[in-house]
Simulated scan of single mutants.
Amino acid sequence: MSTSAERHSESICEQIVTAVADREGVDPLDLVPLYEAVGPEPRRSLFASASENVGRPSASHSFTYHGYEVTVDGDTVDISKQPERPDSELSSPR
């Protein structure tokens, strides 16, 4: 799924939370807040105001949110479901 500038009225953060909630069939307020799920560097970029980024090249950031791989590149958001790992990969002793 890709979203971009067609949702100008929503921030990147709102786009991410809304898209994941839609895919999960839940209210966005039922999800863990995005700021709790994202590390400090991507969080600074995601929450920075547009005026702070004028004239700067956009950086691409990827992180996991509620079982989805999220990549933000400028004003484009890509969200894909993370593949589930078989139980054998989760608990096999090595």
Results as ranks from 00 to 15, higher is better:
Met1Gly: 11
Ser2Val: 04
Thr3Glu: 01
Ser4Ala: 09
Ala5Leu: 08
Arg7Thr: 08
His8Val: 02
Ser9Trp: 01
Ser9Ile: 03
Glu10Gly: 00
Ser11Phe: 03
Ser11Thr: 15
Ile12Arg: 01
Cys13Pro: 00
Glu14Cys: 02
Ile16Asn: 02
Thr18Trp: 01
Val20Glu: 04
Val20Gly: 03
Val20Arg: 02
Asp22Val: 04
Asp22Phe: 01
Asp22Ser: 09
Arg23Ser: 10
Glu24Gly: 00
Glu24Asn: 07
Gly25Val: 02
Gly25Pro: 05
Asp27Tyr: 03
Asp27Arg: 07
Leu29Lys: 14
Asp30Leu: 12
Asp30Ala: 14
Leu31Asp: 10
Pro33Phe: 03
Pro33Cys: 04
Tyr35Asp: 12
Glu36Arg: 14
Glu36Gln: 14
Glu36Gly: 00
Ala37Asn: 07
Val38Ser: 08
Val38Met: 09
Gly39Leu: 08
Pro40Asn: 10
Pro42Thr: 01
Ser45His: 10
Ser45Val: 02
Leu46Asn: 02
Leu46Glu: 05
Leu46Gly: 06
Leu46Ala: 05
Leu46Phe: 06
Phe47Asn: 02
Ala48Trp: 08
Ala48Arg: 15
Ser51Val: 10
Ser51Gly: 06
Glu52Asp: 13
Glu52Val: 03
Asn53Phe: 09
Asn53Arg: 15
Asn53Asp: 07
Asn53Gly: 10
Asn53Cys: 11
Val54Asp: 12
Gly55Ile: 02
Gly55Tyr: 07
Arg56Thr: 10
Arg56Gln: 12
Pro57Ile: 03
Pro57Thr: 12
Pro57His: 09
Ser58Lys: 12
Ala59Arg: 15
Ala59Gln: 14
Ala59Asn: 13
Ala59Lys: 14
Ser60Arg: 15
Ser60Gln: 15
Ser62Tyr: 03
Phe63Cys: 07
His66Phe: 10
His66Cys: 13
Tyr68Cys: 11
Thr71Gly: 08
Val72Tyr: 11
Val72Leu: 11
Val72Ser: 13
Gly74Asp: 15
Asp75Ile: 04
Val77Ala: 02
Val77Leu: 13
Asp78Ser: 11
Ile79Met: 09
Ile79Phe: 09
Ser80Met: 10
Lys81His: 06
Gln82Leu: 15
Gln82Ser: 12
Pro83Arg: 13
Pro83His: 12
Pro83Ser: 14
Arg85Thr: 05
Pro86Ile: 06
Ser88Tyr: 13
Glu89Thr: 04
Glu89Leu: 14
Leu90Ser: 08
Leu90Ala: 10
Ser91Thr: 11
Ser92Glu: 11
Pro93Lys: 09
Arg94Ile: 03
Arg94Tyr: 06
